[in-house]
Amino acid sequence: MDLQTAAQINSFLAAFVLLTAFGMLVQKRIYSLIHLFAWQGLLLSINTAIVGYVASKHHLYISSILTLSLKVFLLPYILHVLIVRLRIRREVETLVNIPMLMLIGLALVIFSYHLMAPVSELSKLITRSTLAVALATVMIGLLMMITRKHAVTQIIGFLAMENGLFFAATSATYGMPLVVELGVALDVLIAAFIFGIFFFHIHTTFDSLDVDQMARLKEGD
């Protein structure tokens, strides 16, 4: 596989990552949301493996396998269990209507490309064109956290942001040092567990996972 092909595959995967990000932004059903998240993880994992092969950075294989096992299987499984246990059936509602959300997302993507234009010119890496997509994924993840009311969708938004960062790391510098990546992976895993435990507690306390309920925790005047 020569560099040209690799760059094309990379761009192709980036496009799909962005697509899944948009998908998650507008997806109302929670099961589909988790599936989209798993797909995004798979795309990331493949991308990492390809970058590792082209740049002959073999530690990227390890992080690729790590991504595969964590983000494609373990985390979606945990979230799935959570939903079943908490008997969440309700459709997820967004605060802003969906066309508006799409428009904001588009604006963010354009903004990211504008920001990353000077960086892409300087870079010599084959993956340089995908940096903007990575940044857009991060911002769309954050936007998702802002616009969703449900605690489970907020954690998915958080994990999507982390995906974006990971993608940025692979495309900007061919990945972070292995130690850092292992640490980040562990952090994400632990965060998921902690979120899971908190959800149970929030659910028993408020009898709901609607984060609006938590406004009651604010210190009164």
């Binding site: 954050l142 802002i146 616009t147 907020q154 938590m214 406004a215 009651r216 925790l217 604010k218």
Partner: peptide
């Protein structure tokens, strides 16, 4: 400080 997570985000 108004207690809504969305605002903080």
């Amino acid at each position: 400080q108004q207690g809504r997570i969305q605002s903080y985000l």
